[in-house]
Nucleic acid binder design. Sequence first.
RNA 1: CGGGGUGUAGCGCAGCCUGGUAGCGUACUUGCAUGGGGUGCAAGGGGUCGUGGGUUCAAAUCCCGCCACCCCGACCA
Length: 491
Amino acid sequence: MSKGLPKRSENYPEWYNELVKRADLAENSAVRGCMVIKPYGFSIWEKMQATLDQMFKDTGHVNAYFPLFIPKSYLSREASHVEGFAKECAVVTHYRLKNAPDGSGVIVDPEAKLEEELIVRPTSETVIWSTYKNWIQSYRDLPLLINQWANVVRWEMRTRLFLRTTEFLWQEGHTAHANAAEAIAETEQMLEVYATFAEQFMALPVIRGRKTANERFAGAVDTYCIEALMQDGKALQAGTSHFLGQNFAKAFDVRFASQDQKLDYVWGTSWGVSTRLVGALIMAHSDDEGLVLPPKLAPIQVVIVPIFRSNEELTRISETAQAIRKNLLAKGISVKYDDRDTYKPGWKFTEYEMKGVPVRLAIGPKDMDNGTVEVARRDTREKMTMSREGIEPKIAQLLTDIQENIYQRAWAFRQENTVRVDSYGEFKELLDRKGGFLLAHWDGTSETEEKIKEETKATIRCIPLDAEEEPGACVYTGKPSAQRVVFARNY
RNA sequence: CGGGGUGUAGCGCAGCCUGGUAGCGUACUUGCAUGGGGUGCAAGGGGUCGUGGGUUCAAAUCCCGCCACCCCGACCA
């Protein structure tokens, strides 16, 4: 195993793959396209989960759990939904194995064929709406605001750790409302929850927008999304929120008696983010030395490394280190004191840099003599010497500064790589030279979007919600357009 | 599913063309020194060479089949 990481500038995909492995986040499993999420990687996801879960509860949602298996017939109830997912569904056809007659191992027992095959959920709309039918009779049962944390399976052709795996973890919210306006408000609210989470916790600036018909969720009337820009200039969809209209209510016959004694179909939404967010986090901030984690999501916020020769020295240093650790813990900061004598300080420094620990404290004999501590921040790789006295509030402040700095850096990067483009030639040239978000006029047709995709591999990531009205001409056809949309190549 | 590539120690690879004792780096174990940025030296353990068949006195190496994985495309969060 070589010591350094591949350079981002030389081979970005290779850098990403190596980083995921070297930072101990995840590895490939025996099953193609699936991954083992290792403890360090999983604890990042757990922190994301904890934060989002609280945000969902604060907006009135409750958690529930729906089954992994979906009867095949459910999937065909909503026409465009089937079409969207049919090509990537895992199907359970049998329920028993038996020993092979020739002793070569186990085989599927042909006698144990399921009468109706089961689909491993690619998403849960169908099973949930078939259940909601029984839960909703009256306007008094609405709104129904439910979320579930689950795994789903989509049989992808090509996979990448965290960004696209055959099985992934996510949350999916599914809500039912008495009218369209309320459902749309819910869709927009949850998009804002995602955007807030991305910006304030992941330190990742995002564009809030709506998808074009081509990119819309199968079965939705309208799909909202947040789009982030990665360091290689490619866009990544970090979260989606769908206004389902009455599509699933109609498909599953979910009706309610309204206050004015009419029977009507309910209005639905669904919204989700997945372990893909971990991939976004990695690609947005990390550098050639390893992971860079925003303090709010770092499993370990501060690591303390003692530098010592003898056991006596270690004992003396440990006293100071433990005191600092205790004071930081009291401030709600997670601290690891790594006093292993099986690894050398330099080795530990590199290791914690690879793992993206935001702040590292080193305490050695010289510090003990001088009453100081060496403080290193991961984001800028600066080292400074601080007085041991009153260091705790300074560390707390430093974590806040790092969180802010990482966000600012990502924001500046996005600014530099978001460009208004008015000619197709410039459009193609920019895409090939540096990628990024291209703000261009579009005539609003799927045909044009399709042609641009074929010719440049760039798609419309979204129609931004905050875009200003600006009459212009489509970058491809020259037809009139009312506002700019965001084009990019994407993950 | 099309095009390309790779399977040899936990990991990364050489050896194959030209058949003849299975190697290197790293990781691991032990000892001594070392200890403020992946420490040095020495010794040691670890292999059905992806798999099935064929050629041969002899196959990691040559021939045929199969399997797996990776990369590039069509599909996607």
